[in-house]
Design a protein around this nucleic acid. Structure first.
Lengths: 195, 195
DNA sequence: GACCCTATACTCGGCACCGGATATACGGGA
DNA sequence: TCCCGTATATCCGGTGCCGAGTATAGGGTC
């Protein structure tokens, strides 16, 4: 069976190992240091599962089993040729082909008619504020990273995220106004259902 | 143990049952008809798992077991008081609190430096085109829905998605230009690494 | 040197999820 | 009336994911 590109954590593993061999725990540390876990969900259980899967498909090899003192054994892995090919091809796919994802907010807003308009308005305002805070936090982080001398390419994904968040905030602002003023299509019916 | 709000399919089930009692297969049909599966991932295996879980937590009850002819038994479910409360509260949470999600594209673009700039440029162009097609498809769908007399509130989530997709397209366009012209921060280094 | 907190490194059981398999009924054509 | 494709309705086995658990080492404090 061919390798399944489900968990992006496997992508992170391949990327890290293409720098130098590491053992799983070190991968986790490195991801943390580089703020990579902001972008790719990391948890230890999945990490070891994913590493084992990559190993089984011969995309990485167990290059050494170290044992310092009486600590648990550390298996150090290295990427194979097939692993590098997989990394690059997966990357191409991720960038070129939009994946069908299911953002939770779309699910929520699609059913907003079930709540009274006044409640909906308040909730949307709450989200708008929260998104605003995320944006300022991101701006601070970018400032810090740029101050450390990191080039834009090193945090390009944060740049993208900011653009998307700004669009979301703008949409929320529009929807809040349209709800308050009752100009959203179907408003009268909506209000009637909640008397 | 309290009910875990993981799979949004459970939300859809609660919403459907708050209209009228149904059996699982009918829920699936209804979701299809209403284009709800665009927004909430539906598959039969998960549907039955989710319904059973809701039942176990007494958010829905098995109101009747019909048997028409010699067909398989159909268990018809209805929502309970606790179920309605759960539905509303979950909805509030989904709308008001941005969830931490991990879009695949962010993972991909964060590692774009591993690919040669020329390749990256081409891939980004491909995505831009794909996003453009999604936008026109959405516009056509909206036209159709509005033509059927459905109010804006009935497809508000598509409105939101269009806003986000437009922002993504704009960002892709910017990034493509910055890559082509070499003005993205760290470009020289990027090119050097791929000679 | 006894204590405890944190860091290191991995393991494991449970469970949600998925996709394909199963089984029957119905309707229409030859 | 026989056949077969489609619709109805659910089930089930495998797998990947998760978070809590385990165990040792190192370092600081009194």
């Amino acid at each position: 069976m061919t390798f399944k590109r489900t968990n992006p954590l496997a992508l992170a593993v391949l990327a890290l190992l293409s720098e130098r061999p590491m053992h799983p725990y070190e991968m986790a540390q490195t991801m943390r240091e580089r703020h990579q876990e902001e972008v790719i969900k990391l948890n230890y259980g999945s990490l070891y599962t994913v590493v084992e899967s990559l190993h089984k498909h011969e995309l990485i090899t167990a290059s050494a089993v170290q044992k310092a003192g009486n600590r648990p054994e550390r298996t150090v892995y290295a990427v194979t040729g097939a692993g590098t090919a997989e990394l690059h091809d997966w990357l191409r796919e991720l960038i070129a082909v939009p994946a069908k994802e299911y953002p939770r907010f779309e699910a929520g807003i699609s059913l907003v008619g079930l709540l009274p308009p006044a409640d909906a308005l308040q909730l949307v305002h709450q989200r708008e504020a929260a998104v605003g805070e995320q944006l300022t936090a991101l701006a601070v982080l970018l400032e810090k990273l740029a101050g450390m001398g990191l080039p834009q390419l090193a945090w390009i994904e944060l740049d993208y995220r900011m653009a998307v968040l700004r669009a979301e905030r703008a949409w929320l602002s529009w929807f809040a106004t349209a709800t308050r003023e009752g100009t959203v299509g179907g408003y009268d019916d909506w209000e009637d259902r909640h008397r």
